[in-house]
Design a protein around this nucleic acid. Structure first.
Lengths: 118, 118
DNA sequence: GAAACCTTGACACGACGTTGGTAAGGTTGG
DNA sequence: CCAACCTTACCAACGTCGTGTCAAGGTTTC
């Protein structure tokens, strides 16, 4: 039964109830619902809500921006298009350079991981 | 000498001069500068500007959102934090799960690449 | 040296995003 | 059964985004 209702969750996370609903609409946190439709926040969600605030504050990022990051994770076509644009490849995903691209992306992730471990 | 000045670039890309400066402020396209500080757009930038318009239109994405994507690519700390939040890992980048994370990321890129080739 | 460019900076304005409040109505628990 | 909660939906205030325009000043070209 360790699930808080929206006002209690607001209390312990620092978000307002209004914002908790907004965060949900942004596609960032899905809480489960009671039979009657009440939002119920478990410890997992509460923790994510807290770290979300830290994340936004620490890097001066907005909910909409993180919402876009979420979109990037869910829409692979979009992610592919964005990646292609940033790499400035002439956007023809059907030749040998694709392999180069993948290799580059993986090296980049390696570097990113290294950075995260510092 | 194949470099256009800002008004000429605006002409051939469909952006307004004002928007070209805005795009630059968003961190999306850096043009080189003449000794006097005039922006000079080479063929590469012109092409990127055109594909940028297509990208934004096709996926209904805003400049600010893509600006955030750009930030994600330049600020590794931010990218790592965002990744960590989305994976809902308890944010301790110093144990075995890091290896899992990397593997997951690479598999994801593989899927992304597959999607791009369809 | 004047016309036609370029620069940065500011003000402006409509559309929309963010955040709060409130209203109308359903749910829960003592 | 009533107080205290929850839901969605709407109105309002304020900020940001995207865009134009203008001003004050430097540059290029003829």
């Amino acid at each position: 039964m360790d699930a808080l209702t929206i006002n209690e969750a607001a209390e312990t996370t620092g978000w307002s109830p209004r914002m908790l609903r907004y965060v949900e609409r942004m596609g960032l946190i899905e809480s489960r619902r009671s039979p009657a439709g009440y939002r119920l926040y478990g410890p997992e969600e509460l923790q994510r809500l807290r770290t979300l605030r830290e994340l936004l504050a620490e890097f001066d990022v907005g909910l909409a921006e993180l919402g876009f990051a979420s979109r990037l994770r869910r829409e692979e076509q979009l992610a592919a298009a964005v990646d292609a644009w940033f790499e400035a490849e002439p956007a023809r995903p059907d030749d040998v350079e694709a392999a180069d691209w993948l290799r580059f992306e993986q090296e980049k992730h390696q570097r990113l991981l290294d950075a995260a471990l510092t």
